[in-house]
């Protein structure tokens, strides 16, 4: 058990290190001198040289990499070439927004998927089960940005109940923060909820067909009771796998939803930095996203062992 945990942690650390080299090299081979790009076409060569030295881009690649990664380990991502701001605090700020969004969306997705999916599985031969199945199929087909645009049109523009976009930090005004979070989290969460409903349904359906559930029914439990007591934990394993994959999808979906709702999250920061060719910032964001994806994988692995005692022994 301890050994398995250490092995998984080791794999995680090595993956992160490899990813950091890949991200760095990818940015380094892109054409264009950051100093020249930042200063524009009319800068004198002396100023470009001075700025290059200031950025540190005149040093060997290996030195630059270790300097960068050394800084990253202490939370210092460097200073943006374009905005001349420290990247670290920016990243933390933006990541906070995205995590709130993705977290809320995930909660919404789960709250939709687990009850509806189980219900649809238990009643899969009945009309109600088929209807849920069909509606979730429809939900899968709706992209998050479209859901976002529709929600804004109805709740913000027509009824003026909720803001059409913008972000209020939770420590500044918690009520406003929640009101601003509802529509984007719904846009992202409804669609994921629809996807997840289908997985929950099929996982529960598979479990329902297992022998041990029939045994449970035979000793007198009602279908719902049997499922809750013996089935859900088994059905959870495939659902957690999908959940892990979906979290990564949510991070990407957040890029689009952040644009629709004008949220200053990681996604909009990535788009802006790419447009401005702010490579050092892009490098930092991509690294954070890669680490987030690896971290989700790592956690999903740990979660398996928590859910399924059989995996602890192997």
């Amino acid at each position: 058990m301890i050994l398995a945990l250490m092995r998984r942690t080791g794999i995680f650390v090595v993956s992160v290190a490899a990813a950091s080299v890949a991200v760095f090299l990818f940015m380094a081979v892109l054409p264009g001198d950051p100093a020249q790009v930042a200063l524009g076409i009319n800068a004198t060569p002396e100023l470009v040289a001075r700025t290059r030295a200031e950025f540190g881009t005149d040093r060997p690649l290996a030195t630059q990499y270790f300097d960068w990664i050394g800084g990253v380990l202490t939370g210092d991502f460097g200073r943006s070439y374009v905005t001349r701001d420290l990247i670290g605090p920016q990243l933390a700020d933006r990541l906070g927004v995205t995590l709130w969004l993705v977290g809320a969306a995930m909660v919404i997705a789960l709250l939709i998927a687990v009850p509806l999916g189980s219900f649809a599985a238990v009643r899969h031969r009945k009309l109600s089960g088929t209807v849920i199945s069909g509606v979730s199929q429809l939900g899968v087909a709706v992209p998050a940005f479209l859901a976002g645009i529709l929600l804004v049109q109805v709740f913000a523009v027509q009824w003026r109940l909720l803001p059409s976009g913008g972000w209020t930090p939770p420590d500044q005004d918690f009520g406003e923060f929640l009101r601003g979070l509802i529509l984007p989290a719904l846009a992202l969460g409804l669609v994921q909820g629809a996807v997840l409903t289908r997985y929950v349904r099929s996982a529960v359906l598979d479990t329902l067909r297992e022998d041990y559930l029939r045994t449970a029914r035979a000793k007198g439990l009602r279908p719902g009771q049997a499922l809750v007591r013996h089935g859900l934990r088994n059905a959870a394993v495939p659902v957690v796998t999908v959940l892990g994959l979906q979290l990564t999808t949510l991070l990407i979906g957040a890029v689009v939803v952040e644009r629709v709702f004008v949220l200053p999250g990681l996604g909009s920061m990535l788009l802006d930095s790419v447009a401005a060719r702010d490579l050092l910032t892009v490098q930092g964001i991509v690294l954070v996203l890669v680490i987030a994806a690896l971290l989700v994988n790592f956690l999903v692995d740990l979660l398996y062992t928590a859910i399924d005692p059989r995996l602890r022994r192997s």
Partner: peptide
């Protein structure tokens, strides 16, 4: 999004 912000009193 800009138009919606004014339409929704943002």
């Amino acid at each position: 999004a800009l138009n919606n912000a004014l339409l929704s009193n943002g």
